[in-house]
């Protein structure tokens, strides 16, 4: 991709996100979201592969629809209440419409179908952008409007997301799709808590970004797009694969890795809100996800030789591991002991 075009896209991406997260006016928030959408589309379709073009069109249509819905909900709120303040979303219909719009943007089930398809069409780095940076502005809108959202609807969406994210990921062999479903189920964990403790939801998002970035960058180093490539990637970077396993298990939320922290805090908040049943259900649903993370982990490192290897070995690696990967991986495995500090500082 042309460096100038790349620079413009990246800058607009940053600008769009900044406008949305710092805006107080619905129209500005909408503008930021639109800038974001338009900026990422060249990045999605940069490989000019038919799948990439398809992905960018799908992405554009879905995001445009969601943005329109968001604009409609804010306008109808302004129509009835006479103001455009984001935090003052009081009209119930607007609230429902907004929840739907944000759910589409975030890829919350049942509006999640576009997400794995789009991720599958893009490169690993763009997929990382799509599942982290592009989800940040909708998350902040959800954060700002959290006091006026409908708890039953969000809890239902969250549980459906956790279920479908875990369930549909079981059947995948493509790493990008698996990570897309993992993202969907993590969005479920964030949505279940957004009303009761919005800051915790944001913390969960940050930690998710940390862990998923570690996984995406590790996979990107070895150019692993599917499980069969993963099987042979240990010859390229054995140590990276070992840490990738830990990062994956952290994403699954096993103690004593970082991923346990958000789960623990969310379950605690849910039990405080007398939602013990929801807590049990959503924690059990995370086991579905654990199954495919575990499978990835098996492929990454556990089935190493001296056991039988009936495949071609790959020896050459043409790029160095990014130091960022090391930092992200160590952060995404060892942050749990810091949880008291993080809990008080958010």
């Amino acid at each position: 991709m042309n460096p100038h075009a790349k620079l413009i896209c990246t800058l607009s991406l940053i600008t769009g996100s900044t406008i949305t997260i710092s805006s107080n006016h619905w129209v500005m928030a909408w503008t930021g979201l639109e800038i974001n959408t338009l900026a990422i589309i060249p990045l999605i379709s940069k490989s000019h592969h038919p799948r990439a073009v398809e992905a960018s069109i799908k992405y554009f249509l879905v995001q445009a629809a969601a943005s329109a819905l968001l604009l409609f909900s804010s306008m109808s709120n302004a129509w009835t209440t006479g103001q455009w303040d984001i935090t003052q979303l009081t009209n119930p219909t607007s609230c429902l419409l907004l929840t739907a719009a944000i759910a589409i943007k975030l890829g919350l089930a049942p509006f999640h179908f576009w997400f794995p398809e789009v991720l599958q069409g893009t490169s690993l780095t763009t997929a990382l952008l799509l599942s982290t940076v592009m989800k940040f502005p909708p998350m902040t809108i959800l954060f700002m409007t959290s006091s006026s959202l409908n708890p039953t609807m969000l809890t239902t969406l969250a549980l459906i997301s956790a279920t479908l994210g875990g369930w549909m990921g079981l059947n995948q062999t493509q790493t990008r799709k698996i990570l897309a479903f993992s993202s969907i189920s993590h969005m479920g964990w964030m949505a279940v808590i957004i009303i009761y403790d919005p800051k915790l939801s944001i913390l969960t998002f940050y930690l998710y970004v940390l862990m998923t970035a570690a996984v995406f960058l590790s996979l990107n180093t070895t150019k692993t797009l599917k499980l069969s490539t993963m099987m042979t990637s240990w010859t390229k970077t054995p140590v990276l694969n070992a840490t990738l396993m830990l990062a994956l298990l952290s994403l699954a939320g096993l103690p004593p890795l970082t991923g346990f922290m958000p789960k623990w805090l969310i379950l605690q908040e849910l039990t405080k809100q007398e939602m013990t049943v929801t807590a049990v259900i959503i924690s059990m649903l995370s086991l579905l996800g654990l199954f495919f993370y575990l499978r990835l982990a098996y492929y990454a490192t556990i089935t190493l030789p001296p056991n039988s290897a009936n495949h071609m070995k790959q020896w050459h690696i043409n790029k160095h591991t990014n130091p960022m990967t090391a930092i992200l991986t160590s952060l995404s495995t060892t942050l749990l002991p810091l949880s008291p500090m993080m809990l008080t500082s958010i």
Binding site: L267, Q268, T271, K272, A279, V280, S283, M284, L287
Partner: peptide
């Protein structure tokens, strides 16, 4: 996992 939820419930 039910144990964790129960422990957090007891804590509350």
């Amino acid at each position: 996992l039910p144990l964790l939820v129960t422990l957090l419930h007891l804590h509350t």
